[in-house]
């Protein structure tokens, strides 16, 4: 009997409160997916972040590789050349700036090699 009552109450409560409210349009209207809402460069940035690229505009300081001639630090650029600022050692008080051109790996005064690699713009 108790379970029957519970069924009746639950069933009616569900119908009258939840369903009818939704039918009458009382349920909250939700907004679309924010990624679908975005456009242009903003969307490209969001998509890049989603795909695991946390630096889509190459704004962060590059992690240095071995820096030998065979294993240079790779510098991405959408252009034919990019200025590199070499922090020659961790205690360096000045940055060594050098132009790096496509197809011409370059060696900093400290001996570290850099190479320009092509990157398609976002």
């Amino acid at each position: 009997m108790a379970s029957l009552c519970r069924q009746i109450i639950r069933g009616n409560a569900f119908k009258s409160v939840i369903l009818s409210n939704a039918r009458r349009g009382f349920a909250d209207k939700m907004m679309p997916d924010p990624l679908e809402h975005a456009t242009g460069l903003e969307k490209k940035e969001l998509l890049a972040l989603q795909s695991g690229d946390d630096d889509p505009f190459n704004m962060k300081v590059l992690k240095k590789k071995a820096g030998t001639k065979d294993m240079p630090t790779l510098v991405p650029s959408c252009f034919d050349a990019r200025i590199v600022g070499c922090i020659c050692d961790e205690h360096a008080t000045a940055i060594n700036w050098l132009w790096l051109h496509k197809g011409h790996p370059r060696r900093c005064e400290c001996g570290h090699w850099y190479k320009l690699i092509e990157k398609t713009p976002l």
Binding site: L41, P56, F57, M59, C78, F79, L122
Partner: peptide
């Protein structure tokens, strides 16, 4: 040289 940009500004 491409005339495309790659910056967030």
């Amino acid at each position: 040289m491409t005339n495309m940009n790659n910056h967030p500004y």
